[in-house]
């Protein structure tokens, strides 16, 4: 931004002093080249560590066989996926988490962001820190914490048993719906804070004078929220939706550590199944790579739709 402004300025000034720039394009090219040189190391790393493996995975997904005995198989892996009951269960679960968890988490994050953005709120720094704190916990650790909470001899069962609410422990993880609820709970606990910070930074970019003007015009708090806050937060909302979507598509740790995919594949995710195919039994790298591409395609498709719907400009 700065450099291009400066060059515009130079080009405006140069004709006035009647000196033709010798090779103005080459000067621009030169700065471009410098710019590229700054980018190249990072770009090279991205290509090497992201795009190259993605390309190799694509090749791998077109081969089938066990361990290292791979043969070219064309689209066979992709066709096979739709006959695989475990894959379909994992797809259903992943989409379930996507549809249920993301709206819950983002609404919660938005409400919390608006609350802690209130200037009149005392100790809002403490609230912000506390809400953000789970985000610095490792996924495995918070999974283990929630497992200990909901285990048969865990905190919740002990509490209910000791207060006489129940006489026999409740096996939360043996029921598909309560197991899913626990997964959603741990995801929400872990990620709401991160999204709240995004919303908070979005909120702080909204000029206070807009709210003052609205207040003078007699707008209620709800009106100010729906007419000013929401439209201006749209880019942030889009960003959080896309990052949450890709995050959920890759969901692994929580399920792996809490339910192991059970009961009866009721919580297993695509990433869990992919891992199981590579390291659980006899490795099927080709087939697992096809799942990796399905995850990629769904995430890309959802991000594309969200961008079309969310950001008309």
């Amino acid at each position: 931004m700065c450099t291009s402004l400066r060059f515009q300025h130079i080009r405006e000034v140069l004709p006035m002093i009647n000196v033709r720039p010798r090779r103005p394009i080459s000067l621009e090219r030169k700065t471009q080249r410098i710019g590229w040189m700054f980018i190249i190391p990072a770009l090279a790393l991205v290509v090497l560590t992201h795009f190259y493996p993605m390309f190799e995975t694509l090749l791998l997904s077109l081969q089938s066989g066990k361990a290292n005995n791979l043969k070219w198989a064309g689209m066979r892996n992709y066709v096979r996926l739709f006959k695989d009951a475990t894959f379909l269960a994992a797809l259903e679960n992943t989409l379930f988490y996507l549809v249920v968890q993301i709206p819950v988490m983002l609404s919660l994050a938005l409400i919390l962001a608006v609350l802690v953005n209130d200037r009149k709120l005392k100790g809002r720094g403490i609230y912000r820190t506390l809400i953000f704190l789970p985000a610095v916990t490792s996924l495995a650790s918070c999974s283990i914490i929630f497992l200990r909470l909901f285990a048969n001899d865990g905190y919740i069962n002990t509490l209910l048993l000791n207060t006489g609410v129940i006489s026999e422990y409740i096996d939360f993880l043996a029921n598909k719906w309560s197991a899913r609820a626990i997964i959603i709970l741990v995801m929400t606990w872990r990620w709401t804070g991160t999204n709240m910070i995004y919303f908070l930074s979005g909120l702080q970019n909204i000029d206070d004078s807009l709210y003052e003007a609205a207040a003078i015009d007699g707008a209620t708090g709800v009106q100010a929220f729906t007419r000013i806050t929401m439209p201006l937060l749209k880019p942030t909302l889009l960003l959080t939706t896309i990052t949450s979507t890709t995050g959920t598509m890759k969901l692994f740790d929580e399920v792996y550590n809490i339910t192991g995919g059970g009961p009866a594949n009721g919580t297993i995710t695509l990433s869990n199944y992919l891992y199981q195919l590579c390291f659980g039994g006899v490795p099927q790298y080709g087939y697992a790579s096809a799942i990796a591409y399905i995850i990629f395609l769904i995430a890309a498709l959802l991000a594309f739709i969200q961008m079309k719907v969310g950001d008309k400009e």
Binding site: K176, P263, G281, V282
Partner: peptide, 20 residues
């Protein structure tokens, strides 16, 4: 045989389905 992990994973699914 080599497919014990595959068997174990799916037998646990079967047991949990029977429980349900």
């Amino acid at each position: 045989g080599p497919f014990n992990s595959e068997v174990e994973a799916n037998m646990l699914v079967a047991v949990e389905e029977v429980f349900a």
